[in-house]
């Protein structure tokens, strides 16, 4: 399969007055066409920073981002227009990512004009097609974001991301600001569009049960590092890293069948430390129920436990 995006040893450090914030220390993953990679982590784990580096909103401190075999680890100002057309993003809060003073039609028109997707005469038809694709009626063209519900706004943001016909979309917690009743519809639309257009998704979220339903592969981040990466099925059947187990055990579920899948109750303790003072050795050891002597001394490396299932822990 064609590899769309390949991220290797990505690093991002921010220099602040309180010291160096090591937002991302080690991220390596790849996404092929038509695949969804779920990037999961708590707040402060660096998952959004990874997304912004892929989008070119931040310059990586170190490491490579390769898109269709070209190195693209540079700032968005330096990126060619054709590349920006290929990569699109949907943000968490549609209330602040849509311009309140432009109608839905105008919002969708702008990327079409910038990237000269079509001639002036076809623009309107394009806009109506986009609305149709996300399941909004065509009257919405003249509406303003303030008169739409949260779910509808997010649909407009998705339509805008689709307008340039990209091959990879970064979804930065697209449903976490919305109710479950609306979330289901958005997720189904995203899955349908992915199948129609063979899109790659980098799906960022903190909701693991959502990942179970849409991701092909899952990567768990903790304090700037990917600590486990596996195919969704393997990941939920045999979670390896103690952090993953803690995360899974913490999810409130709604049925008995789900309760059975959860690892035996590992009580979650402590909080994610600040990325300014990273603990020595394995970054998870202060919260880990299975820690050993070596964990506080040296950082473990990523090992392939079985084909396609990677974990960063001394237990394996």
């Amino acid at each position: 399969m064609e590899e769309l995006l390949k991220v290797e040893q990505l690093k991002k450090h921010f220099v602040t007055s309180r010291g160096i914030v090591q937002a991302v220390s080690e991220a390596t993953f790849s996404i092929t066409a038509g695949e969804t990679l779920g990037l999961v982590g708590e707040s402060g784990s660096g998952k959004s920073t990874v997304a912004y580096m892929v989008m070119g909103l931040y310059q990586p401190t170190d490491g490579n981002i390769r898109f269709k075999d070209k190195n693209i680890g540079k700032y968005h100002q330096k990126r060619p227009l054709e590349l920006k057309k290929e990569l699109q993003i949907v943000f968490q809060d549609p209330g602040s990512s849509l311009n309140p003073r432009r109608s839905v039609g105008k919002i969708l028109e702008l990327p079409l004009k910038i990237h000269r997707i079509d001639s002036q005469f076809n623009l309107r038809k394009r806009i109506l097609d986009l609305l149709d694709m996300v399941g909004l009626p065509k009257e919405y063209e003249t509406k303003y974001p303030s008169s739409l519900g949260g779910g509808e706004k997010q649909m407009v943001a998705i339509a805008r991301a689709l307008s340039t016909d990209p091959s990879l979309i970064v979804l930065d917690e697209p449903t976490s600001a919305l109710d479950v009743s609306i979330q289901a519809k958005i997720i189904n639309t995203l899955i349908r569009i992915q199948k129609e257009r063979n899109l790659g998704y980098l799906f960022i979220t903190h909701d693991l049960s959502l990942m179970r339903n849409i991701a092909h592969r899952v990567a768990i981040m903790y304090l700037g590092r990917i600590v486990e990466q596996a195919l969704t099925k393997d990941f939920f059947e045999t979670p390896l890293h103690p952090y993953t187990q803690m995360l899974l055990a913490s999810i409130p579920v709604v049925s008995e069948e789900e309760e059975k899948i959860k690892p035996e109750r590992i009580t979650s303790v402590g909080e994610i430390p600040s990325p300014v003072n990273i603990p020595p050795g394995c970054v998870f050891h202060p919260r880990c129920p299975k820690k050993m002597d070596i964990c506080s001394q040296e950082e473990p490396t990523m090992v392939e436990y079985k084909p396609g299932h990677f974990v960063r822990c001394y237990l394996y």
Binding site: A184, K185, F236, K262
Partner: peptide, 22 residues
């Protein structure tokens, strides 16, 4: 019933189309 069906399951069962309207 509709609300329950919207919740994504850890077992990976298919979710429905959500509740129409708002």
């Amino acid at each position: 019933q509709a609300l329950m069906e919207c919740v994504p399951r850890l077992t990976g069962m298919k979710t429905n189309e959500g509740i129409p309207g708002r």
